[in-house]
Design a protein around this nucleic acid. Structure first.
Ligand SMILES: [Mn+2]
Ligand SMILES: [Mn+2]
Ligand SMILES: [Zn+2]
Ligand SMILES: [Zn+2]
Lengths: 138, 138
DNA sequence: AGAGTAATTTATAATGATTCTAAAGTAGTG
DNA sequence: CACTACTTTAGAATCATTATAAATTACTCT
């Protein structure tokens, strides 16, 4: 699987040069079966362990912001302290395990259709997202 | 309405001394019909305008954190940039007007019961909250 | 009321995540 | 190869929040 050339194409097609830093970050973010939820700090640490050549923290920030702008990442707010990003860019629901602080995507079919009864004049609904906090039994 | 003595009682009963700073903050937060959503920065500015004697920013932070610990305030995460607090401490849903960044409480009866189909072994649901982003029609 | 104490307030410093800056390096173009 | 725009980078700046430590205040007990 030559994902690298896929990433090169992906970057080029959105006007971003496929630098080695961006390609490494692509590999880390987009070569997964599961959705990845992370902070820039997390990501920077993982990059440090995974690759020999250092990527500066500023570059990680720059890259994540470009990717967000291009629609490859979504910013999510579950905790006021840290900024989280999500490789699943669709509107979707989450489990948040409050004991581990882990986020898990919920599929649309895992939640019965949410319907909002109240209307606000002059406003329309843009998205509906559910956050389900979970904790250990007993 | 001598709310002041009510607040004094409320504070005393939870082991907090009713200082003049805390009483002013109580007035600002809890003498409202509508739920109040705010940041500590917001609150500090309002206090500055409303009262002649200055309350130091450190005290505002201290007070808000004590109030949260005592269960009089709830912290909510809707934006990664800022920490918001909510005078409605129950689990509840929100409209977020993305054009004005304004938060509006949704009553339970404004949202059809949300039911989560997926289960995670060993975990139980602690809360379910819906965030509905709204924007201008047209 | 006055003394003793523990809680509180406060100015200020420290922290830590994020953003900014400006210089050096690199990719695409011809 | 040369040119230019884009990108990376180290380090500084920013800003919200937290920590510190000294001064003040509230409560308790005589
Ligand atoms: Mn938090
Ligand atoms: Mn944000
Ligand atoms: Zn997600
Ligand atoms: Zn609310």
């Amino acid at each position: 699987m030559d994902n690298n050339s896929i990433f090169i194409e992906k970057l080029r097609s959105s006007g971003l040069r496929p630098t080695k830093q961006r390609l490494k970050i692509c590999k880390l973010l987009f070569q997964r079966k599961e959705t990845f939820h992370f902070t820039v700090g997390d990501l920077s640490k993982i990059l440090k362990h995974k690759f020999k050549e250092k990527i500066s923290l500023a570059t990680v920030y720059n890259t994540i912001h470009s990717f967000k702008k291009k629609g490859y990442l979504k910013e999510i707010a579950i905790n006021s302290d840290k900024t989280y990003f999500d490789t699943n860019t669709s509107d979707h629901h989450h489990f948040l395990d409050v004991t581990t602080n882990e986020l898990i995507d919920l599929d649309d079919k895992d939640v019965k259709k949410v319907s909002i009864i109240k209307k606000i004049p002059g406003k329309k609904i843009k998205s509906i997202e559910v956050l389900v906090k979970i904790e250990n039994n007993n």
